[in-house]
Simulated scan of single mutants.
Amino acid sequence: MKITMLGAIAAVAASVTVAHATDWTGYTYSAVSTTSAVKGMNRIVERVENETSGELKIELHLGKTLQIASSDITQAVGDGIVDFAADFFFSGSVPIARVLNLPMLIENDDEWAKASEALEPILDKAFADQGVVLLGGYRYPEQTIFTTFEMKNLADLKGHKIRVTSPEQGRFVEEFGGAPITLSGSEVPTALERGVIEGVLTASAGGAKNWHEFLPFNYRFPVNYGNSMIIANSDSFAALSEKDQEILRKIVAEEGPETTIAFTADEAVEMKSQAAAGMTLVDAADGDMAAAREKLAPFWEAWAKENGPEYEEALKTVRTAIGK
């Protein structure tokens, strides 16, 4: 009788545990499991299950394994198709966030930290308007110029077709006479082979990690930073207990910066590896930084004015934070 009673209690306890467990679907734009981005997301997933004692489990799907276009990830999270994601291509859904990616605006780690912190309330609201909770994020190393042709200065971009990931990067290329082209990451290798594009803006630890064999030259000019947002569906997040919400926020707040650090370390390793494999790395020419700032500064203001008062306020917030 006693054994039967204990068994019944155990069964009830087990059913309660199952009833309270929450299973989320996670997604990341990156299709390569060895990248710092995916490793960071996997750490989040593992820690969440462990630190919530299994109350929240996230099954992470890599890029291209679900029928979600890279440009639609934030929308997919807002629509509840997935509960949790890392989105590098958020600019279509939350374009005001692109202020952080304006070429030549943010030029070092210190400026990035100040700008991100100052802009956080604006971004929280912008993502909330999409039905999404912004939990945090991580940043890639500075985006430099990888090409199939030799570059000694920015003037060498003239007449060449360069793959970009945002209209703002496209403006940079145009300012120096190049032709910007937007392609998904999966299209890049074939486009390089066929001459559809002649270069890309990316990081050594980013796209160049996969495409380096097609790109014999790297002009180490820091155009801008690229970053990913770590987000959750608003309703899914609200359904969590306050305790689990706090745990998830804490883990993302810790692992996002760790992913950034990992990318920075990986950048140095990849640069060395790519150079050893035959890639020619060229430092930015004297005068190119000053020339680029002069060309792009008016664009920051034009970009904000064209998009409206909220964008002008966001740009002002960033410029005030970094003193520029």
Rank of each mutant, 00 (worst) to 15 (best):
L154C: 07
L105F: 11
G78M: 07
V99T: 14
F88H: 03
L135Q: 06
I162G: 03
K158F: 03
F84I: 04
R98L: 11
K125L: 13
T148R: 14
Q130D: 01
P141D: 04
Q130N: 09
G92P: 07
G78D: 05
A155S: 15
S93Y: 02
W112N: 15
P95R: 13
A128Q: 09
S71N: 11
I145F: 06
L157H: 03
L100V: 01
K161Q: 06
I145V: 11
L123W: 05
P95M: 10
R163E: 11
P121K: 08
A85G: 00
I162T: 01
L105C: 02
S91D: 13
L100C: 06
A115C: 12
Y138N: 05
K152L: 13
D79W: 11
L105D: 03
A118W: 02
D79Q: 13
L105W: 09
S91V: 13
L154P: 03
M151N: 09
P141A: 10
T148G: 06
A118G: 14
Q75S: 14
Y140F: 12
P121W: 06
V82R: 01
D87Y: 00
F149Y: 13
T148W: 14
F149N: 12
K114H: 09
A118E: 04
G136I: 04
S70I: 07
D124T: 09
V133R: 08
D79M: 13
L119Y: 00
Y140L: 12
F149H: 15
V77S: 01
A86H: 02
F90E: 00
R98E: 09
V82M: 02
V77C: 05
L134H: 05
Y140T: 07
I81A: 07
L105A: 04
D124C: 05
I106T: 03
F88S: 01
I162D: 02
Y140A: 15
Y140V: 08
A128S: 13
G137R: 01
N153Y: 10
A115T: 11
H160R: 12
S93L: 10
I122A: 10
A69D: 08
D156F: 05
G92Q: 15
A85D: 00
E120W: 15
I73T: 05
D87Q: 00
S70C: 01
F84N: 02
T144W: 02
E111P: 06
F149S: 11
A118P: 07
D87P: 00
V99R: 09
I122K: 12
F88W: 12
G136M: 04
L102Y: 13
L105K: 10
S116F: 12
G136N: 07
L123F: 01
Q143L: 15
A85C: 03
L102Q: 08
E107N: 14
F88G: 00
D83W: 01
H160S: 06
D110K: 09
S91T: 15
